[in-house]
Design a protein around this nucleic acid. Structure first.
Lengths: 157, 157
DNA sequence: TCAAAATATATCGTAGTACGATCTATTTGC
DNA sequence: GCAAATAGATCGTACTACGATATATTTTGA
């Protein structure tokens, strides 16, 4: 048996017996779910790095673009959207500005705030990545959905 | 408007117009999905740290427990299951062994391989965490499922 | 209206951890 | 039985998130 085959068998093992026993935690289902999650995140990371972006940079571009509807997001907004500390967001924005992916602009309404927007370069990279991710999610998001459904069913039994 | 309210509005904005336009990528949907993903991972990290575990340590415990059915997993198996390099797994296992969470054992069938198993301490921590995660997933996995369903529908349109 | 408190951004030093490069031990294949 | 492949371990490096702290601006309240 090759190692790849071994891993496949470890992961895609037949439905766990533990699901029948009410008091027992279904470790295999949880482990599979986290494995699928990691697979998606690994896919995403690989796709991002092909576009010369770190995963965080990709996430930042997506959050800035996806959540700037009425008004651009600020440094603090981005921190909250990425669930990181303010100064971590500042550093991330520093690096991305240096790379020409985004640009800062003072908020005229509140001069403490700094608004962030994508540059043309940032837009291009994000568009490409988002198309790829959309396809991946409409295709292989199935495994994740199956697992989530499994939890919903057993959770309310 | 409080900042929390602002973030909530940024995230839970009404359905994006972009979904109608076929050639346009729905950035807001992708951004929301990733936001929900980060929220789950942040929940998981907080829960793990309450049990004095790093997220990676929690993942390792879960993978070892959840994928050791016929035979314990080896160092290399764990690396593949966690999608990390062999030596990263070695280092992770080193740290966890030092903390008394897991234990190494030589594989009698292949003396190159080292098998890994949970200690009683590791079992206790994982059981507690897994119950919490199971509840979280059966409850608030809903948001994730909604997003995934959205991608499935639009993806094949 | 002006000082104190709150809010927003920025800077610096530190620490955790994943990785590449490299090494040793064991097994497998010809 | 020797070369190649596989498995695990060691060491130095680099990235990045964080805590502590500093500065600027706005808001609050006497």
């Amino acid at each position: 048996m090759t190692t790849q085959t071994r891993i496949r068998r470890l992961v895609k093992r037949p439905v766990s017996k533990a699901a029948d026993e009410v008091r027992t935690v279904d470790y295999h289902a949880l482990a599979r779910f986290r494995y699928e999650l990691r697979r998606f995140l690994a896919f995403s990371e690989t796709a991002a790095r092909k576009e010369k972006l770190t995963p965080q940079q990709h996430q930042a571009l997506l959050s800035i673009k996806g959540f700037s509807h009425d008004k651009p997001v600020s440094v603090g907004d981005l921190a909250k959207l990425l669930l990181i500390r303010h100064h971590t967001a500042v550093e991330l924005i520093d690096r991305m500005t240096k790379l020409g992916l985004i640009a800062r602009a003072a908020d005229p309404d509140d001069r403490r705030r700094i608004l962030v927007r994508l540059t043309a370069k940032g837009e291009r990279r994000l568009r490409k990545l988002s198309r790829i991710h959309f396809e991946e999610l409409s295709a292989s998001g199935e495994a994740l959905m199956d697992m989530l459904q499994h939890f919903r069913q057993s959770g309310h039994g």
